[in-house]
Amino acid sequence: MNIFRLAGDMTHLASVLVLLLKIHTIKSCAGISLKTQELYALVFASRYLDIFTHYVSFYNTVMKLIFLGSAFSIVWYIRRHKLVRRSYDKDHDTFRHYFIVLPCLILALLIHEKFTFRVVMWTFSLYLEAVAILPQLVLLQRTRNIDNLTGQYVFLLGAYRALYILNWVYRYFTEPHYVHWITWISGLIQTLLYADFFYYYFQSWKNNVKLELPA
């Protein structure tokens, strides 16, 4: 474990807590894409299949349970909770996210480190996570006034993977044989997809104006 990875995990945890805070306290999911939440639930479900068969550490197991539990409860809240679901903007959350699940699965079947169920599913989760934010970014372009919690959520979610890139650089230089191109390229693409969001987020913070993404 290194500080970049710990900072990345804490930033990821913070993004989840900000979203749960928003949904649980003000009972609103305005501006939040259900499709991105469903894709993330699938990412964690396919990545953490080995949570009970390959013990890594207490920390690792606890964090996996938190990410799994929060992802599925957020999907449940937006789909089922009578108050929260009313604030879901289904008319604008129209990205065909099923069209990205299959290509990620096919790609994982073609390009992976090892052709085993566990590794292919883990690779699938990396490819899927790289594009999981797309429905959310599309929705933000269509959302007029993006509230602070939503902006912070997306920012933290993008920042966590950027910190992971620093972690991979650190591990590459400190651990022999630590080379994982699939993880690195997926993570880089994932972070690059946030580039314009980061730009507008920074502008809104610097000029102290409401966050707004151009359509």
Binding site: D9, H12, V56, S57, P176, H177, H180, T183
Partner: peptide, 10 residues
């Protein structure tokens, strides 16, 4: 997990 294995990450 193997040394340098990426699956020790979240």
């Amino acid at each position: 997990s193997r040394a340098g294995d990426a699956k020790d990450e979240l």
